[in-house]
Amino acid sequence: MIITVTLNPALDKTLVLKKVSMGEVNRVDTTRNDMGGKGINVSKVLKELGMISAATGFLGGILEEIFRKELKSIGITDEFQSVTGSTRTNIKVVDEERKEYTDFNEPGPEILPEELSDFYERYHALVKEGDLVVLSGGVSQGVPKEIYGILTKMAKEKGARVLVDAEGEALVQAIQEIPFLVKPNEKELAGIVGKESLSVDEMIQEGKKLVQKGIQLVLISRGAEGSILLTGAHTYVAEGLKVPVRSTVGAGDAMVAALTFGLEMNMSPKEMLTFAQASGAAAVMKEGTQAATKEEIYAHLKEAERKIKEWNK
Rank of each mutant, 00 (worst) to 15 (best):
K158A: 05
Q81F: 11
G252I: 01
E303R: 13
G240A: 14
R27K: 15
G61L: 07
E96K: 15
V162F: 09
D253R: 00
K187I: 10
E157T: 13
V83Q: 04
L63H: 08
A299I: 10
E296Q: 13
G252Q: 00
S140V: 07
D29R: 12
A299D: 09
T293K: 06
F80M: 00
A281R: 01
I40D: 02
P144M: 06
G60E: 05
S197P: 05
E64T: 06
K47L: 14
T293R: 02
T89F: 10
E225S: 14
V93A: 05
E48M: 01
G142P: 03
S21C: 15
N33R: 11
K183P: 04
Q141H: 08
M285N: 12
A233E: 15
G159L: 04
V193Q: 02
L198P: 05
D131W: 00
V42C: 02
F261E: 04
K209D: 12
V143A: 00
G36D: 03
P144D: 08
K307D: 12
R88Q: 10
Y101E: 07
K19D: 12
T6W: 01
A299M: 13
L151F: 02
R27V: 11
V172C: 10
T231R: 11
A55F: 08
T30S: 15
S279M: 06
S82I: 14
A54Q: 12
L126T: 08
T152Q: 03
G226E: 06
A125R: 09
W311M: 11
G37C: 09
A291Q: 02
K156E: 10
E110L: 14
L116H: 10
G37S: 13
F261P: 00
I2L: 04
